[in-house]
Amino acid sequence: MKTLTVRLGGMTEIRSRIAAASRKVLAGQHVDVQPCLNFGSYEDMHRVLAPSRLAIVKALAGQGGLSIREVARRVGRDVQAVHRDVTTLINAGVIDRTESGVEFPYENIHFDFDVSAAA
């Protein structure tokens, strides 16, 4: 099953994960590479993956390429609004534009982060 993992964290965390993977490779160990999308903050993530955009992602999951008009029909929204949201999702690397339309090349999304109370 192909899963896209969404994480919160800055460049320090990303560098740490890359360094750990590099050490494994240099030691001759296998590194399991999984698709990951990183956001610097919850607010950044929510700007891209707002509920209306997640509905688009869900409509695309496992469907192959679909036209924007078909995506709009499936989510019950205006084509122009869906086009704007699709453009945002493409620019963020969440979905892809293909010859057959737009697609989410994964079967699901896993959100890997904790939300803590404010200090």
Rank of each mutant, 00 (worst) to 15 (best):
S52D: 13
H46V: 13
G93A: 07
T87P: 02
E13F: 00
A50C: 15
T87N: 11
V71K: 05
F113V: 07
V94M: 12
G65Q: 03
K24E: 10
L37P: 05
L54G: 06
F104P: 05
G65A: 11
R53L: 03
E103V: 14
F39R: 05
L8E: 08
A61L: 14
I68V: 14
R73C: 03
H83A: 08
M1T: 06
E107G: 12
R84T: 15
A81I: 11
L49Q: 02
F111G: 08
S100D: 13
R97C: 02
T3G: 03
R73A: 14
A21S: 14
T12D: 13
A55G: 09
S16R: 08
A92Y: 03
H30F: 07
R15D: 04
S41A: 15
L37R: 15
M1H: 07
A81T: 12
V57G: 13
D114F: 04
H30D: 07
A118H: 14
E43V: 14
V6W: 07
V48L: 07
Q80H: 07
M11F: 02
A81G: 07
A20L: 00
R23C: 00
F39V: 00
E99F: 03
R53D: 02
T87Y: 06
A59C: 06
K2M: 12
Q63C: 05
F111P: 02
K58T: 04
V71L: 09
V79C: 10
R15W: 01
S100Q: 12
L60N: 12
S100V: 02
V115P: 04
A59T: 07
S41V: 08
A61W: 13
A20I: 01
G40Y: 06
V71W: 04
E70N: 13
G9R: 00
R53W: 08
L66Y: 11
V48Y: 05
R7F: 12
N91A: 12
L26S: 02
S100P: 01
R69P: 01
R7A: 15
F111K: 09
Y106N: 04
I68R: 14
V48M: 09
A55H: 02
T88C: 05
A118W: 13
V57M: 14
V82N: 14
S116D: 13
S116T: 15
R17N: 03
I90C: 10
S116M: 13
K2P: 09
F39A: 11
E13D: 01
Q80N: 06
Y42D: 05
H110N: 05
H110M: 10
I95C: 07
